[in-house]
Amino acid sequence: ITFYEDRAFQGRSYETTTDCPNLQPYFSRCNSIRVESGCWMLYERPNYQGQQYLLRRGEYPDYQQWMGLSDSIRSC
């Protein structure tokens, strides 16, 4: 899974293949995501807390595409 700070896969990015309890050191906001394979559970707060979103393989050019309430993703 790759997270992008800006919409349409622009700006600083961070890629991971494992669970991350705290994504804050890698980016300040998340406006687009690419899921290369599988399913990922994302959380608005660190340590798997807050609103959660299940994303399947695909491209999400805007946080509203995954029904996000904000551009805050802090763990996965």
Rank of each mutant, 00 (worst) to 15 (best):
L55C: 04
F27G: 04
L54N: 09
N47K: 12
T18P: 01
N31G: 07
D19P: 02
S37A: 03
R74P: 02
D6Q: 14
E15Q: 12
L55G: 02
E44P: 03
S70T: 07
Y48W: 10
Q65G: 08
M41P: 00
R56D: 06
S72C: 07
Y63W: 05
N22I: 05
C30W: 02
W40R: 00
G50A: 03
C20G: 08
E15W: 14
Y63D: 07
T2P: 01
F27N: 03
Y43N: 11
G50M: 00
Y26I: 15
Y26M: 14
T2E: 02
Y14V: 03
Q64R: 08
I33T: 02
R7N: 13
V35D: 01
Y43T: 03
S75I: 04
R45P: 00
D62M: 09
L42M: 13
P61K: 11
N22V: 12
D71E: 12
S13Y: 03
Y14C: 03
L55N: 01
S13Q: 13
R56I: 07
E36I: 04
A8R: 11
Y43R: 00
L54H: 07
N47D: 09
R57W: 05
P61R: 09
R56S: 02
Q10H: 15
Q51M: 06
S37W: 06
C76E: 01
R45S: 05
S37K: 14
E36D: 12
P25M: 11
G58S: 09
M41C: 09
T17I: 03
M41N: 05
G58Y: 11
Y53K: 09
E5Y: 05
P21L: 09
T2F: 15
D19W: 13
R29Y: 12
F9E: 02
S13C: 08
L69G: 09
E5T: 04
L55H: 00
M67S: 08
Y26L: 13
R29V: 10
S70I: 14
E36S: 09
R74M: 11
R12I: 12
L23K: 00
Y48H: 13
I33G: 00
R57I: 08
T16C: 11
Y14E: 02
S37F: 12
S70L: 08
S37L: 03
T18I: 09
S13R: 12
D71K: 14
R45C: 05
Q49N: 08
S37R: 11
Y14M: 15
G11A: 07
C76S: 13
I73Y: 03
P25C: 15
S28P: 06
F3M: 07
F3N: 01
V35P: 00
R12H: 10
R12L: 09
L42V: 10
R12P: 08
S28M: 12
V35T: 07
R57K: 13
P21A: 09
Q10F: 07
Y63R: 08
R74S: 13
C39H: 10
T2S: 06
E5G: 05
N47R: 09
W66M: 06
Y53H: 15
G38L: 04
T16N: 05
Q10D: 11
Y26S: 13
G58R: 04
W66K: 10
R57Q: 13
D6H: 15
N22Q: 08
E59P: 11
T16W: 11
T17Y: 05
P61W: 11
L42H: 00
Y4W: 06
R7K: 05
D62L: 07
L23M: 12
Q51F: 11
G58W: 02
S72A: 05
E15N: 14
N31S: 10
S75K: 02
D62Q: 07
Y53R: 10
A8S: 10
M67G: 06
G50K: 02
Y48K: 01
I33L: 14
R34G: 02
E15R: 09
F3Y: 00
C20T: 12
G38Y: 06
T16Q: 12
Y43A: 04
Y63G: 09
I1N: 01
E15H: 14
P21V: 10
I33P: 01
Y14F: 15
E5S: 08
F27D: 00
D62I: 03
Q64S: 04
G68T: 14
Q64D: 12
Y43D: 01
R29H: 15
R29E: 10
Q65E: 13
L54D: 05
C39I: 10
Y48D: 01
F27E: 01
D19I: 10
R7S: 05
A8L: 11
M67L: 10
Q65Y: 12
L42F: 11
P21G: 13
S32V: 00
F9M: 06
S70M: 05
Y26E: 05
F27P: 00
R12F: 12
C20E: 09
F27W: 04
E44D: 12
G11W: 00
N47M: 08
Q64T: 11
P61H: 03
Y4M: 02
R29L: 12
E5I: 15
R7W: 07
F3K: 00
C20M: 14
N31C: 15
L54I: 05
G50L: 00
C76M: 04
E59L: 07
S13D: 05
S13F: 04
T16E: 03
S75D: 01
D71V: 11
Y26V: 13
S70D: 07
E36Q: 07
C76F: 02
Y53P: 00
Y43M: 03
R34T: 13
S70A: 12
L55A: 02
E36W: 11
W40S: 02
R34Y: 06
L54A: 10
R29C: 14
M67P: 08
Q24W: 13
S37H: 05
Y53V: 09
E15S: 11
S13G: 09
R74F: 08
R45F: 12
Q65V: 09
G50Q: 01
S72R: 11
Q52R: 07
D62A: 10
N22F: 15
G68Q: 10
E36L: 07
L69D: 06
Q52Y: 03
M41K: 08
G68C: 15
S70Q: 07
Y26Q: 07
T16M: 14
Q24V: 11
S70R: 07
